[in-house]
Measured scan of single mutants.
Amino acid sequence: TETAWISLVTALHLVLGLNAVLGLLLLRWQF
């Protein structure tokens, strides 16, 4: 079960990281 939790947490971190990068790019394009 630990491996499943680790994979789930890493997936969440990757998604949050991608969202942060996309958000910064969108803000930079708007201004």
Rank of each mutant, 00 (worst) to 15 (best):
V9H: 00
N19I: 05
T3H: 04
L22R: 08
L16Y: 04
L16P: 04
L26W: 12
E2M: 00
W5K: 00
W29H: 15
L12C: 03
L12D: 00
G23A: 14
Q30S: 13
I6T: 08
T3K: 09
W5Y: 14
R28Y: 09
R28G: 11
L8V: 06
V15E: 02
L25G: 07
H13G: 15
I6S: 04
L18F: 10
V15S: 13
V9F: 10
L14K: 00
N19P: 08
T10M: 08
L25I: 10
L18A: 08
S7I: 12
G23Q: 01
H13P: 08
L27D: 07
L25H: 11
N19M: 04
Q30V: 14
T10I: 12
L8S: 08
L26S: 04
S7Y: 11
L14D: 00
L18Q: 01
L24K: 04
W29R: 15
L25E: 02
V9I: 12
S7D: 09
W5N: 02
L24Y: 03
R28A: 06
A11P: 03
L27H: 07
L24W: 00
Q30A: 13
L26P: 12
A20E: 07
N19W: 02
A4V: 05
L22E: 03
S7F: 14
E2A: 08
S7R: 04
N19Q: 04
E2V: 03
R28E: 04
A11S: 07
F31C: 12
H13F: 12
I6W: 10
G17M: 13
L25D: 05
L12T: 08
T1S: 12
R28S: 06
L27T: 00
W29P: 15
V15L: 14
A11H: 01
L8T: 06
A11M: 12
A4T: 06
T3S: 10
L22V: 05
L25V: 10
L18I: 12
T1P: 12
T10G: 05
E2T: 03
L27F: 11
A20L: 14
L8F: 04
L14G: 05
L8E: 05
L18R: 07
G17A: 14
Q30H: 14
W29E: 10
W29I: 15
R28C: 09
L14N: 00
L18G: 05
L8D: 02
G17F: 14
L14Q: 03
V21K: 05
V9G: 03
L16R: 03
L26M: 10
R28Q: 02
L16F: 06
T3W: 12
V15C: 14
L22K: 02
N19E: 05
W5H: 03
G23M: 15
G17N: 02
L26Q: 04
T10L: 06
A20Q: 04
H13T: 15
L14W: 03
T10A: 12
L12A: 00
V15A: 15
L8R: 03
L8M: 14
I6F: 10
A20W: 05
Q30F: 07
W5R: 08
I6R: 03
T3R: 07
T10K: 11
V21Q: 03
L18D: 09
L12N: 10
L22S: 02
